[in-house]
Design a protein around this nucleic acid. Structure first.
Length: 231
DNA sequence: TCATTAAGTATGC
DNA sequence: GCATACTTAATGA
């Protein structure tokens, strides 16, 4: 394995308080791997052998329902820790992580978790911040699912992806990873047909522009109105 | 208001 | 040319 460059970690929140030597130590213990679009990184229920940091790409975190449907719980962006089962006092992964686009991740064996939280200043607080934020986000979408109509839910989902992965272009905010209608259906509890109809309608009215697996939000303001946001 | 069925077109390896 | 992504209309809960 080639030596990893220290610049990969410097500045990332979980490691921002560490000195060069510590970063070097952490990198020397890390595994690094590339995942193609659609590849699972770990699966729900499997032994949590490693914890991860997403360097590049995007992840879908999915959970299976009793009847075998896949729900997309959240997305993970570069710089974030994931698969941090030990922070949840678990020894199996609570969900499956799938590369939504070509992805590169670092990982460490879970036996290093205690060392990380003990020795590396800021790591522990940062992981709990991450856990807290995810719970908050999941809770928010859960309330949304229970209270909002389909159009508002789909609008929120699209906005969420645009906000967290979006890059600005001439046309608007572009979601940075491939998304299908089915994917959006899986995060909003509806069908791909309904999502397709909604997106077609929005496109006609100039709110979005989309091609296969690719969405640009061209009028975020009006989408926000549709999402029924109260703030 | 929305899922389902069904029947089509478009797109990309 | 085949699989996958997407569209659209009709029907009915």
């Amino acid at each position: 394995m080639p030596k990893l460059d220290e610049s990969l970690l410097t500045g990332l929140p979980p490691f921002s308080r560490l000195d060069r030597g510590q970063i070097r130590q952490i990198l020397d213990q890390a595994g690094s791997r590339r995942y193609e679009e659609g590849t699972p990184i770990f699966r729900e229920g499997h032994d949590a052998e490693r914890f991860y940091l997403l360097l590049d790409g995007y992840l879908r975190v999915v959970q299976a329902t009793r009847d075998g449907e896949e729900i997309i719980v959240l997305h993970i962006s570069p710089g974030q820790l994931f698969g941090i089962a030990p922070a949840l006092q678990r020894d199996t992964y609570p969900a499956t992580a799938i590369a939504a686009a070509e992805t590169i991740a670092l990982s460490w064996p879970v036996r290093l978790w205690d060392t990380f939280t003990r020795e590396y200043e800021g790591f522990a607080t940062e992981t709990y911040r991450t856990v807290g934020q995810r719970i908050g986000q999941i809770q928010e979408t859960l309330t949304e699912l229970a209270t909002q109509a389909v159009e508002a839910r789909v609008a929120s989902a699209v906005l969420r992806m645009a906000n967290q992965s979006g890059r600005k272009t001439e046309e608007g905010i572009e979601i940075a990873f491939p998304v299908t209608r089915q994917n959006i259906a899986d995060m909003t509890g509806t069908t791909l047909h309904t999502v397709s109809r909604l997106l077609s309608g929005w496109e006609k009215n100039g709110l979005v522009r989309s091609t296969r697996k690719h969405i640009v939000v061209t009028d975020a303001h009006r989408l926000v109105l549709l999402s029924g946001a109260k703030d």
